[in-house]
Write a protein that binds this DNA or RNA. Structure first.
Length: 564
DNA sequence: GGTCTGACATCTTGCAGAAAATAA
DNA sequence: TTATTTTCTGCAAGATGTCAGACC
């Protein structure tokens, strides 16, 4: 076997990148109205004559099992998909509870429009846009459209970012070269209209599945650790796609490009630009989904997760198996999703235009770091990443009981728990649970039980329109279930999370606010000591214990999960 | 002084094999 | 009763943030 065939397509793609100097493209496309949420998506008809495609299939398929078991068509997946219509039946209720959880289950194309209309719009499609606006990527000839260190410049949405950023980092003022796909319409299921400028009916729509979690981090300016051996992203990129031709074949991959031309530094508790970014760094910037190439039906059937994607600062990592993306510390990056229609054998069809679609989600921007700078980010990581559970304070004494409860296997609880056999796994947290489900589970835990912010209160980021200012993001539609309103769940969390404006709290939280408070007090230098007697922690513990008793008896609790 | 690196403790994940349950 | 499937258990590998020290 030729050595070249052993390489990941992403590696080979990156090789093409290396031959091109970086630039700051300014395509200057027309910018659509930008309302509540900016959409940055491009689709380009690019060159298509890639020899790479010919080797894609074999290599990626080979890595399917090893690298991406979650994306396979496991029985659990099938089961999950079968459940979708049923889950849709309670989607409206879930939206009342928790937008992130609803996101998860509203992915089904059969989702009910009426539900969507009343939903807090935590997830909505980002339709691709067609036209040579942003330097979208082409499998066939990536170098032509993207340098190895391409930069997307900050534009309209960054004004929103800067407005919403607690650090107030200056990000605006850089003309965005991309066209915006469409403006946010306020509904999670945006229907294409051929009359809309810049949109092409029948083209793919992409949902950022774990958008609420991304927004939480984005509020504080997401940081991603990069190490020599590679560090996984958290949150990781996870998408759902619709609008593909079920029978056509597609390659789906992610690349990471510079989000702005600055070198960043964490100073005075906030990120500030400091000099120019080094755009000459070479290395792999593309991560091909192991399932690629595959049919549109395959991609649309299941979540497309990039949980195994690793970030590294090791330039020599380019010759790994393509699992690692080489970045530079203290630079801001923007991941992008690319959907490329290919022939059944994985080769590109050179005769048809419009087969490359690129999607950019501003909330997934992050600054690469070798050590966390912002303690808020650290805390969010600890709170939401199951692997970091060991760093959660009071986990054993406070959290275990509720954790057990909230993860009690339920038919609908977690797609993940359906995939993994055994109660042990159902009980255990997982990325998916943490990213999508535990919010939901927490809602279960406090179905109007007046549980306060404990597990179920969110202290940081609203899930409605995460790029909005906290004031904007206050979701009037986020009405709790009857009873939850009476509980005034915000009260305690408001008092416990000092740094975070109360207005951006939501009931969407992956984890307990209890230990979050404890840790926040411990870590945050700006925190003021809270006397034990008056600590909300104690009251929350009591509340939580009460909840443990009541939840088990709560008929509504089970009814909420009942399919019938 | 800022940034990077590697060791560390803790936890999750994934796999293999055993045990239990079910079907033929 | 036997074969197959499902569930459970144990363990190694891997992922996490922290911390101290090295590097620039």
């Amino acid at each position: 076997m030729q050595l070249e065939h052993c390489l990941s397509p992403s590696i080979m793609l990156s090789k093409k990148f290396l031959n091109v100097s970086s630039s700051y493209p300014h395509a200057g496309g027309s910018e659509l109205a930008l309302h509540d949420h900016p959409i940055i998506s491009t689709t380009d008809n690019l060159e298509r004559s890639s020899p790479l495609k010919k080797i894609t299939r074999g290599m990626t398929n080979q890595s399917d099992t090893d690298n991406f078991p979650d994306s396979k068509d496991t029985p659990g997946d099938v089961q999950r998909n079968k459940l979708s219509p049923v889950l849709d039946g309670v989607s409206e209720l879930r939206h009342s509870f928790d937008g992130s959880a609803a996101d998860r289950y509203l992915l089904s194309q059969s989702s009910q429009p009426q539900s969507a209309a009343s939903a807090p719009s935590t997830m909505f499609p980002y339709p691709s846009q067609h036209g040579p606006a942003h330097p979208a990527f082409s499998i066939a000839s990536p170098s032509r459209y993207m340098a190895h260190h391409p930069v997307i410049t900050n534009g309209a949405y960054n004004s929103l970012l800067s407005n919403s950023s607690p650090q107030g980092y200056p990000t605006a003022g850089y003309p965005y070269p991309q066209q915006y796909g469409h403006s946010y319409q306020g509904a999670p299921f945006y229907q294409f209209s051929s009359t809309q400028p810049g949109l092409v009916p029948g083209k793919a729509q992409v949902y950022l599945c774990n958008r609420p979690l991304w927004l939480k981090f984005h509020r504080h300016q997401t940081e991603m650790i990069i190490t020599k051996q590679g560090r996984r992203m958290f949150p990781f990129l996870s998408f759902n796609i619709s609008g593909l031709d079920p029978t056509a074949h597609y390659n789906i991959f992610v690349d990471v490009i510079l989000a702005d031309p600055n070198h960043w530094r964490f100073q005075g508790g906030k990120w500030v630009p400091c000099g120019k970014a080094d755009t000459n760094v070479q290395g792999n910037r593309v991560y091909m989904h192991p399932d690629s190439p595959n049919t549109g039906a395959h991609w649309m059937r299941q979540e497309i997760s990039f949980g195994k994607l690793k970030l590294t600062n090791n330039k020599g990592a380019s010759n790994n198996n393509g699992q690692m993306v080489v970045l530079q510390s203290l630079h801001k990056y923007q991941p992008r999703l690319h959907v490329v229609e290919v022939n059944e054998d994985g080769t590109e069809d050179t005769n048809q235009p419009g087969r490359v679609q690129t999607f950019t989600f501003p909330e997934t921007q992050f600054i690469a770091v070798t050590a966390y700078q912002n303690t808020d980010i650290t805390q969010l990581k600890i709170d939401h990443n199951p692997f970091a559970k060991g760093f959660r304070d009071n986990y054993d004494t406070i959290y275990t009981g509720c954790d057990m409860d909230r993860l009690t296997p339920s038919p609908n609880d977690s797609p993940r728990s359906q995939i993994v056999p055994g109660a042990r796994y159902a009980m255990a947290g997982s990325f998916l649970q943490d990213q999508f489900v535990s919010n939901y589970a927490k809602s279960r835990f406090h179905p109007g039980a007046g549980a306060g912010p404990g597990p179920g209160a969110d202290r940081s980021v609203p899930h409605t329109n995460g790029l909005l200012s906290p004031q904007q993001a206050e979701d009037p539609e986020r009405s709790p279930l009857p009873g939850a309103e009476d509980s005034k769940p915000k009260d305690l969390s408001d008092s416990s999370w000092i740094e975070t404006p109360s207005s951006i709290k939501s009931i969407d939280s992956t984890d307990s606010g209890i230990y979050e408070q404890a840790k926040r007090r411990r870590i945050s230098p700006s925190d003021t000591p809270v006397s034990e007697s008056s600590s909300p922690l104690k009251s929350e513990v009591l509340t939580q214990r009460d909840c443990e008793k009541t939840c088990a008896k709560d008929i509504g609790y089970y009814g909420f999960y009942s399919h019938s």
